[in-house]
Nucleic acid binder design. Structure first.
Lengths: 244, 244
DNA sequence: TGTAATAGTGTTTAATGTACACTATTTTAG
DNA sequence: CTAAAATAGTGTACATTAAACACTATTACA
């Protein structure tokens, strides 16, 4: 980390001119069975009027993750949810104002009444379906967002991450639908039932939900298992990367 | 990324007091069939005399990856090798001097005569076996290193990364040994032969190498396939995370 | 009462993983 | 010169998992 020839306590500010460090948070949620992401509309130069990933400068007295959580809470009012560092973007020209290094995070939130303040359509903050993003995102945010979606997909294959997007109680087919939304491909119903049950991640409840056809049983995620160990199972029905 | 309420071109330096940004590079190599990592011994406060991961401040005119490559070249004289961003560490108290945010990278180099300057034992730069690291690394470098090893392991399971550590020509059992070194577990010889051949990643050469027993055929990695697409295959012989 | 709609189960076959026994070709000890 | 040790490499059988898809179940509603 530290330059070996540098003196201990003094800095030559002109020599060690410092970049700005920001934290950007790509916030995902599921709205009406579709994966959405939160964007904010910029009010000033540069990229005035363009949509951007929410973020801000870090404070000197908070860790990166704390900064990301603060940002998340400022935008959505949500605390204590799943958050994970994605990547740090630091190319020279990515912000026309000055050198900016952005530590990007991914957050997953459950969409419910809590974040009404976001769903206000007249506001400069809005949820967009991942399949229908606005054009010309600010800065390199298109790249960041694409990377976030890609990471979300690949993590889904070996973690229990999808549960973060669902409410407390859900049906197995809703869970399957969530996987399909994120993976962007269809999964076999029978195989999904079998795998998810064998995994032992779910706790059956006595509750049912009625709809158009046969009522469905509701399940709950076993949280004890989650923290337990890095639980892993694979969902993809084709062997990844089969280069024939 | 950008604070939405901030003005466009001016900064209040006292308000937006900036952290320092460094790049640390965890450099791995294989020496005598064992995985090693490069560390430097600190000459000054803080952590004087302790070993640390090599790194330094970024320049304002280089990208993060450029900074990491520069650092790698300064320490080992090696260019154009495998390098990958690991994680960004930014806890508040990790450096007693000032707020420091470190973007950590992993690099893999082939150990050969090129980096003699590193193998000089009297120097303050030295290769350590991953299995026998020095005590009391500087800063939070123990944590960074542990994370780097863990990442290396998990990436090995689905990438062709091990080839970066081997010379141009190698035997299949050497490759197997490399996998075993990094994974920290034994692999079945027969299964390894079969899988690596089926994968079609290797190019047979006419060269053999003689040793104590039967001579071994040497192979070369097909580089055309590597860039091709994110080639994936799995090595672990147990299903990962099988929590029975 | 029967059809649409949704939920959920079972079964068959193919692919892959795992263990381990076997053969092959060299050096070296006696 | 020959047998044993050392290393390289192949083959095979069994278990496990994946994938496709046909089937049954339970509700609302026409």
């Amino acid at each position: 980390m530290e330059e070996r020839e540098e003196t201990a306590t003094t800095y030559d500010a002109s020599r060690y001119d410092r970049p700005s460090v920001t934290v950007d948070v790509v916030i995902f949620t599921l709205i009406e069975r579709e994966l959405h992401v939160l964007l904010v509309q910029r009010k000033r130069w540069p990229y005035e009027g363009h949509w951007a990933i929410p973020g801000g400068f870090i404070n000197m007295d908070e860790s990166l993750e704390q900064a990301a959580r603060r940002e998340l809470e400022e935008e959505t009012g949500v605390r204590d949810l799943y958050i994970e560092q994605l990547f740090t973007f630091g190319d020279v020209g990515r912000d026309p104002r000055t050198r900016v290094i952005s530590v990007a995070y991914i957050a997953l939130v459950r969409f419910d009444a809590q974040h009404l303040r976001v769903s206000d359509e007249s506001h400069d903050v809005r949820w967009f379906p991942v399949s229908a993003l606005p054009r010309d995102l600010a800065f390199d945010h298109e790249q960041i967002l694409a990377f976030a979606v890609s990471r979300l997909r690949s993590k889904l294959e070996y973690t229990t991450l999808a549960f973060q997007l669902l409410p407390e109680l859900f049906s197995i087919l809703e869970l399957k639908h969530t996987y399909e939304q994120i993976l962007g491909e269809e999964l076999d119903k029978g195989n999904f039932y079998r795998k998810i049950k064998e995994a032992g991640l779910l706790e059956e409840t006595t509750q049912m939900r009625e709809g158009r056809g046969r009522p469905t049983r509701l399940w709950r995620f076993k949280h004890d298992r989650a923290g337990d160990k890095q639980f892993v199972f694979r969902w993809r029905e084709d062997r990844a990367g089969n280069t024939k």
